[in-house]
Each structure stands twice: as C-alpha cells, then as structure tokens.
C-alpha cells in the first residue's frame, strides 16, 4: 500500500522548463494514467517519481515519506520501460532475479520467487532463454515479471505497449488490467500517448499538456465534462468537433464542442449545414465527414448510413451534450 503525493513539482533541463508546478494526489492502489501529446512531460514526470530524474523543486512523497533525496532503488518502486530494458546477456531467470540478487537474498529463495512469477506470467518454459529468443509480448512479460518479483508498492509503466503490434497491444492491455486486479494494493502509474489505453485501463486519468496538468478525473468524467478545449479534443476518438461563429454565439460561447455521436439530422436547414464529403463505413458505425462553413465536421451514425457522398446535410447538435468553451478555451 502506498500513496504518491506530488506538491508543486517543477523540473527544468537548463533553460527548458519541462514540468510546471504539478501537484497530484495518487491514492493507494489506484491505477493512474498520464496521457498527453509527445513532449508534454508525462515521461519526465514518471521518471521524477522513479527517482531516475531529480526534480528541480517541489516535494515528492511516496507512502507519506518525502523521497526527493531517496535513490530509485530505495523508493519501493518498479519500472517497466518502453523498450523493455531487459539485460540482453542474462537469461529470463537472471533478468527477473537480478533485483533479488542485489537484495542479497539466498539462492533458493530467489529461485522460488522467480519461478512463481514465471508461472504467473506463463514464462516457465522460457526461463533459460535469452531475451533475444523471445517475442515482443514475451519480452514485455519478462519486464513486468521483473517488476512483480520485487513486490514493489508502486509500479511505473513508461509507454509499455508502444513497441507492440496492434493485436498484441490489445492482448497486453487486458493482461495489465488483469495484473492490476491481481495486485489490488499496488499503486500503478502508467504513461501513454494513446487515449484508448488511458480510457480503458485507468481509474483516473491525468491529462498533461506542455508540462501542466490540464485535468484529472475518471475516464467518463473527462469524456463527459472536459474542462478545456484541449482535454475535450484529446479524449475521445474520433475527435470532438469544435464549432465557432454563429452557432457558438447563439449559446454565448466562443467555441462549442460536439462529439460525433451527438448530432441529429434535420430535414430543414440549420445553422450547421454542409455537404457530405466522404464516408467511412466500419459496420458497427459509420463516420460521415461533412464540410460546413465552420470547417469539416465528423458525425457518427450507428450501423450503415443512408446518405450519399455529395448530399446536402443539415446537422443539429443535441442540446444537452453540447460543451461550451469561453475565449480562454476553458469550460463555461
């Protein structure tokens, strides 16, 4: 059990201010996902928690103890790297057991623990192999095994799935979710740029942009009540539509945001009329790309669509699902 508390954390490399005054309260046993575009500082923030990077100012607490000056190995954390960071010259067994060896555990105990973890991750038959003789998914599992075996209170994941192909990514996503279920007391912090991973795995999501926390909340909170244009645009796929001009003025907003599924079609002309440019039919849904005077809008229709390319469409946002944003791009 370990909570993590960040208070006014700043991090600069020379003149580059990467993390700007981040404060965050991560509860014990929570699965937190840091999400944001590349360069937003999410990995740096994770590395600051791990201790691999020193913070420039602010306090970092793990399990109610300030850890600013505590070395990574003493923070009770384990980390899974994007590249897996397996030791190429060591067998799977040695890779998983290295941390235990450093703790000075007797051989027999290391063997017992590594084999238990190997079994848990279906690696038993691979324990004598070198990492280069494993598939991507197996390597990922070894990296996770290395974290589990230490019994760390906090797991840090740095984009662990971005090197895997799409099918394997979905599978590993489920395995990590299952791992979280099996280790309910372990706090997990997970960094990704993929909002689908964030939405599907997180208890709470932290959206970062340019080193600042934009919003913290459960996936549905962020989806339903984004507090800024940035969060609204980042969470959800396809992206939320942003409309300015007359339809926004009418609602006393600078910008209004409407998700693709929150449009109705009208028989008569509306504020938002345009021609259907292009359709993507996925079977379960269809995406209609409508070119309007305020720009290209995406509309989601369940199942197949009856509309033809080139057809004139009149769109009407469903009033209760319209997000209003002011001139500062914040929610009104």
């Amino acid at each position: 059990m370990a909570n993590i508390k960040l208070t006014n954390i700043n991090k600069s490399y020379g003149s580059h201010h990467i993390i700007k005054d981040v404060s965050l309260d991560i509860k014990s046993g929570e699965f937190i996902v840091f999400v944001g575009p590349s360069g937003c500082g999410k990995s740096t923030l994770l590395r600051s928690i791990s201790g691999l990077d020193q913070v420039s100012s602010g306090t970092m607490e793990i399990d109610n103890a300030v850890v600013n000056d505590v070395p990574p190995s003493k923070r009770g954390i384990a980390m899974v790297f994007q590249s897996y960071a397996l030791y190429p010259h060591m067998s799977v067994f040695e890779n998983i057991g290295f941390a235990l060896e450093n703790q000075g555990l007797p051989r027999a105990e290391i063997k017992k623990k590594v084999e238990a973890v190997g079994e848990m991750l279906q690696l038993t038959t691979y324990l004598t192999r070198l990492p280069k003789a494993l598939s991507g998914g197996q390597r990922q599992r070894v990296a996770i095994g290395r974290a589990i075996v230490r019994g760390a209170k906090v797991f840090l994941f740095d984009e662990p799935l971005s090197n895997l192909d799409a099918a394997l990514r979905v599978q590993m996503r489920m395995e990590i979710a299952k791992l979280k279920r099996d280790l309910p007391n372990t706090t997990m912090v997970y960094v990704t740029h993929d909002q689908v991973e964030a939405m599907t795995m997180a208890d709470r999501i932290v959206v970062l942009q340019a080193g600042r926390v934009m919003q913290v909340g459960t996936p549905m909170e962020l989806y339903e009540n984004p507090n800024s244009v940035f969060v609204a645009g980042f969470i959800g796929s396809p992206k939320m539509n942003f409309i300015t001009g007359k339809p926004a003025d009418k609602l006393k907003a600078k910008t209004i945001g409407v998700r693709p599924e929150h449009f109705e079609f009208s028989k008569t002309a509306t504020d938002i009329s345009g021609t259907l440019d292009y359709t993507e039919v996925l079977g379960s849904d269809s995406f209609l790309y409508v070119s309007t005077p305020t720009g290209m809008l995406t509309v989601r229709e369940p199942g197949r669509t009856q509309y033809k390319t080139g057809q004139k469409l009149h769109l009407k946002p469903i009033a209760e699902h319209v997000h209003r944003f002011g001139p500062d791009d914040n929610r009104l």
């Binding site: 791990s50 691999l52 070395p71 990574p72 190995s73 954390i77 384990a78 980390m79 790297f81 994007q82 590249s83 960071a85 397996l86 030791y87 190429p88 290295f98 941390a99 450093n102 703790q103 290395r146 230490r150």
Partner: peptide, 14 residues
C-alpha cells in the same frame, strides 16, 4: 549500451 538497461539496473538496486 542502451541507457535504459542501466536505469533498470539502478532501479533493481545495483
């Protein structure tokens, strides 16, 4: 040498 193998070893307490 990949930098992160060294970082992983640091975290592993070496």
């Amino acid at each position: 040498i990949p930098e992160d193998t060294l970082e992983a070893a640091t975290i592993d307490g070496a």
